[in-house]
Nucleic acid binder design. Structure first.
Lengths: 174, 174
DNA sequence: GGGGTTTGAGAACGGTCGTTCTTGACCGAG
DNA sequence: CTCGGTCAAGAACGACCGTTCTCAAACCCC
């Protein structure tokens, strides 16, 4: 029944997540996506409906395949020191790790659906910190904010604190 | 010597900072600026040269009039608890407070001049935390990241930790 | 009060945006 | 082999992008 698809949808969404994470939503054009994903324009619109549809799919995948698994790993950390260290190490894994951050700053305020996905990711990080730290719901949110802030500094490339400094700080808190 | 200017440049830059902070750089069109600032297209290009020139002026003003003064106030805080509380309270002041954050995520990586300004703002926050906390340069950077992360959560509107929770956390650290 | 000069007003520029359409290649079913 | 249906290829669309241009209005100086 019809010509077979010549691209892997999962792989295309992953490539889109990286592009959106690095260049932002408005900074990534459909031409960029067509070139970077190797998927034809027509197919892209057939499968995802719109640029925004592809963005939502990429953010959804980012949460399911990266943020939520990371949160699950962090829940098993032994103490806040190990948690912070693991969190920072995980963020060095790939460029797509910044999509949650980028979405939170650029789109969460103006697109309710993006806002809901971002909230889901933040809540997962909160839950992990809370389970490990056990100092009440508030402190977990603050420490999750620390994780995000560290990632933001790394992304801005302005020379944030070293891994040793993060570890030393974490031991003071724990 | 020519027709007098019908707009206040300082006020126009401030209005531009708010627009850029809320909608981002790419999300703010020149038409948006012309409408929001009440400044004519031609005058805008005569004074600032380009959209990017206006953005840099807005970011510069944001640093000089908001970020650096905030850092100066924080340097006088009595303890990390008071510092964190004051920092969070200051961020509730106005929408333009998010321009540093927005610039760090959206433009610092791709525009070196923006990156330098963002680095200047982050360093000022680091210096304030370091002076108050006095736990070494690294811990200051981590805590400054916490301040940024809290602001990011507030901006994303996804219900971050309460002010009480921040205070309780700060007392534990101090 | 008439130059000279700078601003305000708005039309217009080429380019790029997200999206859609047309055409031909390819597949399984009958 | 033929037909119905899906996909790839790329041209094309109107709208909007950042920027520039033309021209009248408003001021200072002489």
């Amino acid at each position: 029944m019809g010509r077979p698809r010549a691209f892997d949808e999962e792989q295309a969404v992953r490539a889109a997540a990286e592009l959106f994470a690095v260049r932002g939503y408005e900074g990534t054009s459909v031409d960029d996506l067509v070139t970077g994903l190797g998927v034809h324009r027509g197919s892209l619109y057939k499968v995802f409906g719109s640029k925004r549809g592809l963005y939502l799919a990429a953010l959804r995948r980012h949460l399911d395949e990266e943020v939520l698994p990371l949160a699950a790993v962090l829940r098993e950390a032994e103490g806040l020191g190990a948690l912070l260290t693991q969190a920072v190490a995980a963020f060095d894994g790939g460029p797509a790790a910044g999509l949650l951050l980028s979405a939170a700053v650029e789109r969460a305020g103006s697109d309710a659906e993006v806002g809901a996905l971002v909230g889901e990711g933040l809540a997962a990080l909160d839950g992990a910190v809370e389970r490990v730290g056990g100092h009440g719901a508030g402190a977990a949110g603050v420490l999750a904010a620390t994780v995000l802030g560290l990632r933001l500094r790394a992304r801005a490339g302005a020379g944030g604190p070293s891994a040793d400094a993060v570890l030393a700080f974490a031991e003071r808190v724990a």
